[in-house]
Computed example of a mutant assay.
Amino acid sequence: MISFQRLSLEQVPWDALEAFSDRVIFQARPWLEFLRHTQGAQPVLAVVQEDGQTVGYFTGALLYKYGKTFKGWAAS
């Protein structure tokens, strides 16, 4: 079973995240801090586990404009 556990910024193992070869700038701590300071975004990070084993991490940010979440970043 796959599960997600949200992490506080203090709990995030940044070295482990940065070690993944497929990481991009938009998942990096400096980018999330930039969004937090300039846009008021709330960073969201979670550990992804399958059957109790860590298989990866989720990185994102919540951004509100005019009282609503910012749409368009993940348009399908």
Rank of each mutant, 00 (worst) to 15 (best):
Q27V: 00
L7R: 02
L17E: 01
A16N: 11
I25V: 15
A74F: 07
V44C: 08
S21K: 12
G72R: 05
Y57E: 02
A16H: 08
Y64F: 13
L45V: 09
Q11G: 05
D22P: 02
Q11A: 15
F70Q: 12
A75F: 07
S21V: 12
S76T: 08
T54V: 12
G56C: 06
S76R: 06
T54S: 10
Q39F: 04
V55I: 14
Y57P: 03
R29M: 07
A28Y: 02
F4L: 15
L45F: 02
W73V: 05
H37E: 15
E50N: 13
E33P: 01
D15L: 07
I2T: 13
Q27D: 10
G56Y: 00
H37F: 09
L9H: 04
T54F: 00
L35F: 00
F20E: 11
A41N: 01
L45P: 00
V44Q: 08
F26W: 12
H37C: 14
G56N: 03
A75H: 07
P30L: 05
Y64N: 11
V44H: 01
L35P: 00
A19K: 03
D15E: 15
A46M: 06
W14S: 06
T38E: 12
F20G: 08
T38Q: 13
K68I: 03
S76A: 10
I2K: 09
Y66L: 15
G56P: 05
L7M: 08
R29D: 06
T59V: 14
V12M: 02
M1W: 04
S3W: 01
G67R: 04
A28S: 15
Q11V: 03
A28E: 11
D15G: 08
S76N: 10
A46K: 03
Q42R: 08
L62G: 06
Q42T: 13
P13N: 12
